[in-house]
Amino acid sequence: MQDFGYVAAKTVSEAVTLLDEKGQTARILAGGTDLIVQVREARRDVDLMIDIKSIPEVNVLDYNADTGLTLGAAVECYKVYAVDEICNAYPGLIDATKIIGGTAIQGRAGVGGNLCNASPAADCIPPLIVLNATAVIAGPNGERELPVEQFCTGPGQTALENGEMLVSMKIPAPASNSSSFYLRFIPRNEMDIAVVGAGASVTLDDAKQTIVSARISLGAVAPTPLFAEEASALLAGREVSDAAIDEAAAAAQAIARPISDMRGTAEQRTHLVGVLTRRALNGAIQRI
């Protein structure tokens, strides 16, 4: 493993200054479950690890039924699913936090790190997308916000500019008659990377017969997690029915452009997009 420096930053500005000074070879260390492995396997060149876990802003976990959730970038998965209100409000996100790695990984890994690692197969990103999450980013020029679906720009690549770091994610309060669902396909039952992941959020009318709006997101079928915009849009105003869900699933399949690798073949992935989109939508609807 290459040699590198380590700093435990105390403030966002200290971390941002260091990032700005050191450039691309400085990396933020939160849970470390991706970063340490990448450096150990010489897949990422790092001169300095900036540990942000002592910075107050990245440890915020605050849910308010009116304003929604602020989820600090370094909050570990296990802390998220320990809060009942959050589990009730964002079950799709909870689905993801409970299947990342194993229990020991969930003791270190967080949603923020999963987002910043920008894996196409990241489990937390599709639920963040379907829940309309925004990323709160701090940089040398202050803070900015970005919808999560714009955060990843390629495998391991993000919209973070030089000197910028993720501080938190904000998720709006859920609408009434809405819920969310995330699932992935893996050959084992745990300890695996998604062959395909699918997240869905659905809002129904008061009679729970008609879909008011829906959002669908897919993982591991493109260089970044995808927001399936057309598939989502065509559900708005439709009666809850197998036909509507099948159409959405077909539309989702149409935007998948998977590769074949050791985790699955392109044909398998395209097929699974249809299966998982249906299951995610049905899962979200059943939770309402």
């Binding site: 380590y6 260390l29 470390g32 479950t33 150990r40 540990d51 020991a104 990984i105 270190r108």
Partner: peptide
């Protein structure tokens, strides 16, 4: 495995189960 996939190095850090191969020694201050 040295990458968090086998659990043979599991320890408890501040009350929480972790893979000690995925924690830096300097982080335990």
């Amino acid at each position: 495995c040295n990458n968090g996939n086998c659990g043979a190095c599991s320890v408890i850090l501040d009350g929480r189960l972790v893979n000690s191969c995925l924690v830096l020694g300097v982080e335990t201050e």
